[in-house]
C-alpha cells in the first residue's frame, strides 16, 4: 500500500508569458510505515509536490495513485481520496477559525459526514496522537502556546484518519524542545503504520529520521535513496541552499583522513568508527 507520484510535471501560469516550470518529471513513492523526506532549497518545488500528493493541484502531466488506484485531481473520487492523505501546511495554525480546539479538530471528519459518538472518538484519538492533553479540547486555540497550537493544527488533520501524512516544514518557528517533541510524535505515527512525507530544508532531521530522502533542485529530482546514498551524492555534488549537518561534514573529513565511516551516522556511530580505527592502528 503506497502513495505514488509518477513523472509529475507542473507549470504555474501555464500558457501565459509568466509560465514557470515548478516540477519537471518528478516521481516519488512512499509506503505506509515509511518516513520519506523531501528536501530542497526555497523554490525547489518541494511544497508544490506536497500539494500534488494531496490532489490540490492538477499536474500538467504525470499521475498520482493512492493504494494502487490512479486518482484524477478535481474528480469526485479526488475528494474522497484526499481523506487518505493528510496535508499539514506550513504554519498550519493560521487556518484556525473555530472557537474551541475541539471544533477545529472536528472540522475535517464532519466534512466527510462523521457525526455523533464516532466524531467524538475521532477527535479524542487525533488529539492524543498529536500529543494534546484532553483538557485543551475546550480551550480557545488562540490561548494556547506556540507549540500546543501547532499540535492542535496537526490533530485537525490527523482527525481524518489519513494513511499518508504530508508535512510541509512542520517544525518551522518552534524552539528546540518543540522540534524534538514533534519529531518524536511523527516517528510514533510512522511506527504505527502511517506514511510520513516530510518536506523540509532541515538536513539534520532528514538525515536522522528518514528511511529515504528525495532531493529536489529547481523542480528536478537530483537524487533519492537512503540517507547514506544521499549523503554520498551530496558530498560529491552539493546542492545550493542545502547545508549538511555537522555530523556528515565531520564524517566527510574523517574519510579524507582514511577513517572508514558511514556519512549518515549519528555522533555515537562516529565515535564507534573512531574507536575501531584507533584500535586497528594501535595493533
Amino acid at each position: 500500500m503506497s502513495i505514488k507520484a509518477v513523472n509529475i510535471k507542473y507549470i504555474y501560469n501555464e500558457g501565459t508569458p509568466a509560465a514557470v516550470t515548478a516540477l519537471d518529471g518528478i516521481s516519488l513513492e512512499a509506503e505506509r510505515g515509511e518516513w520519506v523526506s523531501v528536501v530542497g532549497h526555497t523554490g525547489s518545488g518541494k511544497s508544490t509536490l506536497a500539494q500534488h500528493l494531496n490532489l490540490l493541484l492538477t499536474p500538467s502531466s504525470g499521475t498520482v495513485s493512492i493504494d494502487g488506484a490512479r486518482v484524477a485531481p478535481g474528480s469526485r473520487e479526488a475528494r474522497d481520496a484526499r481523506r487518505k492523505v493528510g496535508l499539514v501546511f506550513q504554519y498550519p495554525e493560521s487556518q484556525f477559525f473555530a472557537e474551541t480546539v475541539r471544533e477545529e479538530i472536528a472540522f475535517a471528519p464532519s466534512n466527510w459526514g462523521v457525526g455523533g459518538a464516532a466524531l467524538d472518538a475521532c477527535v479524542a484519538e487525533a488529539a492524543s496522537s498529536a500529543g494534546l492533553s484532553p483538557s485543551m479540547l475546550g480551550s480557545n486555540p488562540f490561548s494556547l502556546s506556540g507549540g500546543e497550537r501547532r499540535r492542535a493544527a496537526i490533530a485537525s488533520v490527523l482527525s481524518m484518519k489519513p494513511d499518508y501524512l504530508v508535512l510541509d516544514e512542520p517544525t518551522a518557528g518552534l524552539d528546540a524542545s518543540g522540534v524534538r517533541g514533534l519529531t518524536a510524535t511523527f516517528k510514533d505515527l510512522c511506527s504505527k503504520g502511517m506514511a510520513v512525507i516530510h518536506v523540509t530544508h532541515d538536513m539534520e532531521i532528514a538525515m536522522s529520521m528518514s528511511d529515504r530522502i528525495a532531493v529536489l533542485e529547481r523542480g528536478v529530482l537530483a537524487v533519492s535513496g537512503t540517507p547514506e546514498r544521499v549523503a554520498e551524492y551530496l558530498s560529491e555534488r552539493p546542492v545550493k541552499g542545502l547545508v549538511m549537518p555537522p555530523s556528515v561534514r565531520f564524517a566527510q573529513g574523517l574519510r579524507e583522513k582514511g577513517v572508514r565511516v558511514p556519512l549518515a551516522s549519528r555522533v555515537s556511530g562516529i565515535i564507534e568508527a573512531l574507536e575501531e580505527a584507533r584500535s586497528r592502528r594501535g595493533r
Binding site: 528546540a176 524542545s177 522540534v179 524534538r180 555537522p246 555530523s247 555515537s268 562516529i270 565515535i271 573512531l274
Partner: peptide, 20 residues
C-alpha cells in the same frame, strides 16, 4: 536551561570524552 545542544557541541563533547 532546556536548550538543544547543537550537534557540533555534542560531537565535541563525545570526541573529548573519548580522548580524540
Amino acid at each position: 536551561f532546556g536548550f538543544d545542544i547543537p550537534q557540533e557541541l555534542e560531537l565535541l563533547r563525545s570526541l573529548r570524552d573519548g580522548g580524540f
